[in-house]
Design a protein around this nucleic acid. Structure first.
Lengths: 236, 236
DNA sequence: TCTGCTTCTTGACTTGAGTCAAGGTCTTCG
DNA sequence: CGAAGACCTTGACTCAAGTCAAGAAGCAGA
């Protein structure tokens, strides 16, 4: 794919009623009124359609994004066109924050999974904030640490587990997270495949395999877990 | 492997002459004399033999480590015994810092690659430091960001590239880093294999492949790059 | 220098997962 | 409601990389 030339609709001055929402984020809870106003004045809300590209790997770095609504994936793509999802992002999550500290262009491509609204925060605006606020700095460290964990898990899965084990682990984790034995896939199966480091065909076969063994039941995006302990077992 | 019962030699009160070295680290450059003394009083130098286990995945978290001399690998191991190296660490590098922020036990196993001296810093001692020092906080963010990049690269390599491409990328990166066309592998080939997400047999074949194509020459741990541009090409 | 490790290489074989191609199912919109 | 497109599944085939087993090379200590 190439960078989309069709710009998102962009409101240079985010509306006043957005502020309380931003203040709700733990990350920004410590901000003073002045700082918050300053931040909002420099930021912009951008609206994207499903499958729009937010930025491409290699694009010059301009700033970071906060998901207001919708979902976004951060991906790496091979020359042959295979895609690996690095992160899946939902509302209230920040992304493209790493290059703030490492410099250089965007290291991944960001693409929306559905119609999405993002708050764009220019590089310098965020750095200014960070300097005066140890509180924000600490919260960023917490967020980075959590993502590092996720990445280490992903590396472990890719290097040491087969596709069925990765799928089992994903299902087990989701089930534990929501506490519900019935789960609705939050993304298409093609995207789930890209997240698990495989392709739709192979994912399809793995799902079938688990179903044949009576561990799960699949109906479209709905998956019922029949045997949580065997799933855990398979996940390794 | 199981946790080593053979404790490392440990000096509870690090010698005075260590302080200037610690001060040299950018991370600790901003510390006051008092803070530095406080830190050193609570920390301990520990000496390990080659292949000693520093901690095992799942061990209760006690604190983080600074490499004083030697080399350490952070690994994940599969039930079948295959090993994936997550990080390779050398002098002046900090590790096991992520669980400070995420909580929980050590997420990986740490093992020395050679005789090694580490400075152990208890969890609370480091947190105390962090709270009074926005400067350290920012430097930690920088370090985390850099490691996140490395992890994203590793994920990309594992998911999207074959072993020869991963090897080519490693060689290309090292060559660029040192600026030297002849490079000495810093680790055994078994460890390089574990770092590249493969096994010694496959690595051996990949090295041979590159050699047959006239791109490199291998002699033990010494590798001469004959054709840097083809290597870059292969690395994708 | 000889001996016994550990590390590395090579060959033959197996297999998990990717490719390609065809067809089915679901959804959306005219 | 029906057609077109997106999404998903299935089967047959291929291939990269892992396993197993044997042996070569390098190294360290006696």
């Amino acid at each position: 794919p190439t960078t989309n030339d069709q710009q998102p609709t962009s409101s240079p001055m985010p509306s006043e009623e957005l502020k309380p929402n931003i203040r709700d984020l733990p990350l920004f809870a410590a901000l003073s009124v002045v700082e918050l106003r300053q931040l909002m004045r420099q930021s912009a809300v951008r609206a994207y359609k499903r499958n729009d590209i937010v930025f491409m790997e290699g694009d010059a770095y301009a700033g970071l994004y906060l998901v207001l609504s919708g979902r976004v994936k951060a991906i790496k793509t091979s020359p042959e066109g295979k895609e690996q999802i690095i992160h899946l992002l939902g509302p209230r999550e920040l992304f493209a924050d790493v290059p703030l500290f490492t410099g250089g262009p965007y290291p991944v491509t960001a693409q929306t999974l559905e119609d999405t609204r993002l708050l764009f925060i220019p590089r310098q605006a965020f750095l200014d904030l960070l300097h005066g606020n140890p509180e924000i700095c600490m919260r960023m460290l917490g967020a980075f640490a959590k993502r590092m964990r996720q990445l280490v898990n992903l590396v472990e899965s890719l290097a040491l587990k087969d596709v069925t084990a990765r799928l089992a682990r994903y299902l087990a984790d989701e089930t534990k997270r929501t506490g519900n034995n019935t789960l609705l896939l939050p993304v298409s199966k093609a995207n789930l495949a890209a997240f698990l480091g495989t392709i739709p065909e192979t994912l399809s076969r793995s799902l079938h395999d688990l179903e044949d063994r009576g561990i799960i039941a699949v109906q479209g995006k709905q998956i019922v877990i029949h045997n949580r302990s065997v799933l855990q077992e398979l996940a390794g």
